[in-house]
């Protein structure tokens, strides 16, 4: 073997050894890049040797060429490994630095809340939409006629002492008032003269009650009205039961007891099985197993006649209950006045 070939091969071994230690010792990617250029670049010793290859004899050329390839592969492998290690280390470092506690958040103010009364009202509306009812609304200021007279509560009727009303200091005295129930909406529906009627009337009502933990002078009601051919007591019972089950759960049972409202005859109070004890009897229901929820009955013939409904053809039923009462019952609210105080600590609970 020629002496200079030995020298070349020795030089190559020397390069491998030096480069290997250099690649092993490299600390960052820029240093790696300069090492790569130093050992594998165009101006590297390997490149110089390759350039000199043509000057060699065929055999020598083969030997040196093969050696060159091996060396280059080794060095490239070394560089790759070093790069992988460095990149892994860099990623690990970034990951370590990136550390974050995902729970370091405060959603205060990010999203608002619908008022509890709105939430329950929408729930009730959706239930009755599912039964094919329309949602009818009306004015909160009504005339005496729509609030009382057309509902068979005539001026001297004892029932007018039951509902103490806010009258307005406008128009003729005693003629314009804040509605005491949503029933005037029913009268407007009857007057519309389009039958059948399957409707609910949710809304705000006013009564001259002093605010206390159980009462507000301003509160919300939902009433239902069905007027169709052949509607009777059984339809009322069925509708009350189905809708209460939709609201309170399918295990809920309902009970009707005789009651009195001027606008219905027969009239009934309706109870549901206690939402807390499911009818076993507990403190909420006073051990009765039942909770009185609302009133209902068949629409009084005088009410239908007052709005010129053909009573030979049509009959109907109506029912109603308080939305706020439902809210305080369902959410165990100790004082109904929370509903109107708008304390953010209360509003944001629901």
């Amino acid at each position: 073997m020629e002496e200079n070939i030995k020298t070349i091969l020795a030089t190559l071994d020397d390069i491998v050894s030096k480069a290997s230690s250099a690649f092993d010792a490299v600390n960052d990617l820029s240093e790696l890049a300069s090492l790569e250029s130093l050992y594998l670049g165009k101006k590297s010793a390997l490149s110089e040797i390759k350039k000199e290859l043509s000057a060699l004899e065929v055999d020598s050329k083969k030997i040196v060429g093969e050696k060159l390839n091996v060396v280059r592969e080794v060095l490239e492998q070394k560089a790759r490994e070093a790069k992988e290690l460095l990149e892994a280390a860099k990623l690990a470092k970034q990951i370590e630095e990136d550390i974050c506690d995902v729970t370091e958040v405060d959603i205060d103010g990010v999203y608002g809340h619908l008022h509890l009364v709105t939430q329950i009202r929408q729930e009730l509306e959706d239930i009755f939409l599912g039964l094919g009812y329309e949602i009818a609304e009306g004015n909160e200021i009504e005339s005496d006629w729509y609030n009382f007279t057309a509902l068979n509560v005539d001026f001297d009727h004892p029932a007018r002492t039951m509902q103490d009303s806010f009258y307005l200091d406008t128009g003729e005295n005693g003629s314009i008032l804040l509605r005491t129930h949503t029933s005037p909406v029913q009268v407007h529906l009857l007057e519309r003269g389009q039958f059948p009627i399957y409707a609910i009337c949710p809304g705000r009502v006013y009564r001259r009650d002093t605010a206390d933990p159980r009462h507000l002078p301003v509160f919300h009601q939902i009433e239902g009205l069905v007027v169709d051919e052949g509607i009777g007591f059984a339809d009322l019972r069925g509708t009350v039961e189905v809708s209460m089950q939709a609201i309170f759960g399918s295990e809920t049972r309902t009970r009707l007891r005789p009651g009195y409202f001027p606008f219905t005859e027969p009239s009934a109070e309706f109870d549901i099985t206690c939402v807390i004890c499911k009818g076993e009897g507990c403190r909420t229901c006073g051990g009765q197993g039942w909770i009185e929820l609302g009133g209902c009955g068949l629409v009084h013939p005088n009410v239908l006649s007052a709005s010129n409904v053909d009573t030979d053809r049509y009959s109907g039923f109506a029912f109603g209950f308080g939305i706020d009462r439902l809210a305080i019952m369902r959410h165990n609210i100790l004082d109904i006045r929370y509903l109107i105080e708008n304390d953010i600590r209360f509003l944001s609970q629901f």
């Binding site: 939409l129 599912g130 329309e134 007591f233 019972r237 009934a268």
Partner: peptide, 19 residues
């Protein structure tokens, strides 16, 4: 006795939807 009557669900003939 109110509780001795049957229960029947009358059906609206239209689809309920918000106005």
């Amino acid at each position: 006795g109110y509780e001795n009557f049957a229960k029947r669900l009358p059906r609206s003939r239209v689809v309920g939807r918000l106005k």
